[in-house]
Write a protein that binds this DNA or RNA. Structure first.
Lengths: 200, 200
DNA sequence: AAACTAACATACTAGTCGGTATGTTGGGCT
DNA sequence: AGCCCAACATACCGACTAGTATGTTAGTTT
């Protein structure tokens, strides 16, 4: 009676353990055994739910990374009044509650992109899709802000969106390499000042 | 007579082959055999010049990556009149002559940082040293520009330097994931406009 | 309750990796 | 000229990996 079979839950357990291991060690350096050791499950369970290691990696991107970026960065933009205040709020929130451990392991999206996008086209397209959706949502929000007289109409919304997304990724990368909150805060505040300069 | 023993040259051959392989596949995914196959040399030669794979990776950072960043980004800042024009010139140069292949493989410094800095402290300190020197050189150049009346004195030079370096890394990362020159150009031009806004 | 299937566990294979032990060769020094 | 050590080459080991083959158990159906 204690058994409690729950395939969907099992799949999710494997997926999240894989996500954490990959976040810490990178995809290629993560062994399936190290993932499974965190779950108490075995290879049989893993290969029942995923055809191979690559598919497991794709699922991490398609489900966990995608959802994380969407909920943190994309969806807040869709129904907000002032896009600049919205991004500033998200960034401030991240800055305040980020732990040294999180700074060290870095951003899941950025990590996987740098590691995998040049050696596996499947990873690259999936990760690029996430970035593209993010950029589009940001560009749309900026355009709406321009129409509402909240954002300077002189700027190219698409161009600014590309720059902002790139800079956020760059700030996360800076945090990872320095592990120094001051430098991370410097870079982030530089970005915040740029965002402020976009106001009308 | 054909032999031509030249240990320093041999070491350099191994080092540069390793650099190229690591740039394309990442450090952990690069096998020593794949490096050696590009050189015509063997394991004996490699282990004569480097005690282990990690030391080879450290040498790549300390010698090749360091020198590349220093010559491209740091030294031009040291003896220039206007730091903003200087950075803009470097960026424009990179934008114009970058090949699709280079965009795909990404920036050596950024790649290694994202992959290795969270799992090997030796890599992290070495890579962070490069970033720090870069940031310091940029901050100094901005300060000098402020004294000369070329750069807005309202800005915090150290903060701006941290942001600019982070954004450049972010632009390189963007290029790697999108492999779309338009998006890369958008992000870069966004950064260029920010740089322009720093003028007095 | 028997039969069947999905959901796992266990044991193993084939291959690859970093690293080592040992052999060979060439060139500078005396 | 001959010696000797640095500079390599070759062969191999033990550890580890992704993936497979097969066994076992829990639920579900009839």
């Amino acid at each position: 009676m204690t058994a409690e079979r729950n395939p969907e839950h099992t799949r999710q357990v494997i997926l999240e353990a894989a996500f954490n291991e990959v976040l810490q060690n990178g995809f290629q350096a993560t062994s399936l055994d190290s993932i499974l050791s965190k779950t108490g499950l075995t290879k049989g369970a893993l290969y029942h739910h995923f055809p191979n290691k690559t598919a497991l990696g794709y699922a991490i991107v398609d489900e966990l990374v995608f959802e994380q970026v969407a909920s943190s960065w994309v969806r807040p933009l869709n129904n907000c009044e002032n896009p600049i205040d919205c991004i500033l709020g998200i960034m401030r929130g991240h800055m305040e509650k980020v732990t040294p451990e999180e700074m060290a392991v870095g951003c899941p999206l950025n990590n996987l992109t740098q590691e995998m996008s040049s050696i596996d086209e499947g990873f690259r397209t999936r990760l690029n899709k996430i970035y593209t959706k993010w950029r589009e949502a940001l560009a749309d929000a900026l355009k709406k802000g321009q129409q509402n007289g909240l954002v300077n109409s002189d700027i190219d919304a698409g161009q600014a969106a590309a720059f902002i997304v790139a800079s956020i990724a760059g700030c996360a990368g800076t945090a990872k390499s320095t592990q120094c909150k001051k430098t991370f805060a410097d870079a982030t505040e530089g970005l915040m000042e740029y965002l402020g300069s976009l106001r009308l």
